[in-house]
Every structure is written in C-alpha cells, then in structure tokens.
Amino acid sequence: MSKTVHLIKLSVGTEDVAGLEAWQSQKRAQTEDGLPRHITRMWPKREDEILNGGSIFWVIKGVVLCRQPVLRLDEYDSADGIRRCAIVCEPGLIRVEATPRRAFQGWRYLPVDDAPCDLSQARQHEDILPIELTQALAEIGVR
C-alpha cells in the first residue's frame, strides 16, 4: 500500500484566501471539466503517494492558510512544446491552521506529519483576519 504525501506551493501574487479562490474561478485556471488546476514545470516523482489522499497546501504571504485535495495529475502541453504537469484539485479551499513558511521556489513535498491541521468545521467559515495579523499571530504560535 502506498503512503500519502502532500505538496506545498507558494500562491505567488495572491493577497489572501479569497484572492486564490477568485483566481481559481477563472477559466484559464481550470481544466476542460471545470476543475481548478495549477500548472508546473516539474512532474512529481511521488505521484502515487500524492494521489493516495494528498493535498496541495497553499502558502499566502509567508503563511500556510489553506489546502485542496489533489484529484489527478494531467499532462499539459504548452505552446513552447515543453511537457508540464497540471495538478488538478477538488474545487474549494479548506482552511488550515495558519503556519509560517519561508519562501521557496516551485513546490515541495510535505510529509503528512508536518502538514498543518484543518480548522474545525465551525471555524471554516469565520471571517478571515487581515494577512498581516495572521502572519504575526502565526509567528508567535497562535493559530
């Protein structure tokens, strides 16, 4: 039986969770069947582990704030002829405990034991704090 591993990725240019949701609602950020996707240059070598219940965790302005379960990895051929990977996710974002994360390039594997916990169902719909306050609270360990 295959283990599970997650991915973690910076959401570059995104100001908050609502901004990521808005981006994913655009046609250019979706597959032909309307699912959100993120296109990346590198194909994950641990594909089976990702597809065994893995999610992509999104870092927004230095803080992990949400995740999306990964449904599949599609091949994406760009105009430049380079094979790319489209990480296709379930629609909707699941908020997680705010966790600081330093900047990095591309995506990284995230072991299940290191992944931030989901916020409770009651907290999923709370008003989102300003990102600067979320960052400050996460830095001192308040989630």
Rank of each mutant, 00 (worst) to 15 (best):
W107T: 06
A103Q: 05
C85G: 09
K27I: 01
L10D: 02
R83I: 14
Q135F: 13
K27V: 05
G81Y: 04
D16G: 02
A136S: 10
L20K: 01
V5H: 03
L137S: 06
R72M: 06
G62S: 00
G53K: 05
I50H: 07
P69Q: 09
Y76W: 13
M42S: 15
L35T: 07
E97Q: 09
G34S: 10
H38M: 15
L93E: 10
Q121D: 15
Q124N: 00
W58H: 14
S78G: 14
G13R: 10
L129V: 05
S78L: 07
A122T: 11
V112A: 03
P111R: 07
D77V: 12
I8N: 06
T14F: 01
M1G: 11
L137F: 12
W43H: 15
P69H: 04
R123K: 14
I87L: 13
L20F: 05
D118G: 02
V63G: 01
A103L: 06
W107S: 02
R46L: 11
P44G: 13
K3T: 09
F104A: 10
L129H: 08
K27Q: 10
V142P: 00
L110E: 04
W43I: 13
M42K: 15
L51T: 12
S2C: 03
V96Q: 06
F57G: 06
A98K: 01
E21D: 14
L73N: 10
R143D: 11
G92Q: 10
D80P: 14
I128T: 09
I60F: 07
S120D: 14
P91H: 05
G54H: 03
H38Y: 13
L129G: 05
T40Q: 05
G106V: 07
E126H: 09
I87W: 06
A138P: 05
A86T: 12
I94V: 15
L93I: 11
R41T: 13
V63M: 04
F57P: 01
I82A: 13
T31A: 12
E21K: 09
V70T: 00
K61Q: 12
P44C: 13
H125S: 12
D48S: 15
I128R: 06
Q30F: 04
G19N: 05
C66T: 08
R28W: 08
Q26N: 12
K61N: 07
C85N: 14
G106A: 09
S25V: 02
G141A: 00
P91Q: 05
L71R: 14
V88W: 07
R67D: 10
V112R: 00
R41A: 13
A115P: 01
R46P: 08
L137R: 15
Y76F: 14
A86V: 12
G53A: 04
A29N: 08
G92E: 11
T99C: 05
W58T: 10
V12K: 14
Q24T: 03
W23G: 01
Y109L: 02
R101N: 00
P116F: 06
Q24M: 03
V12S: 12
T40H: 03
G34A: 09
D48C: 03
P100Q: 01
A79Q: 13
I82V: 15
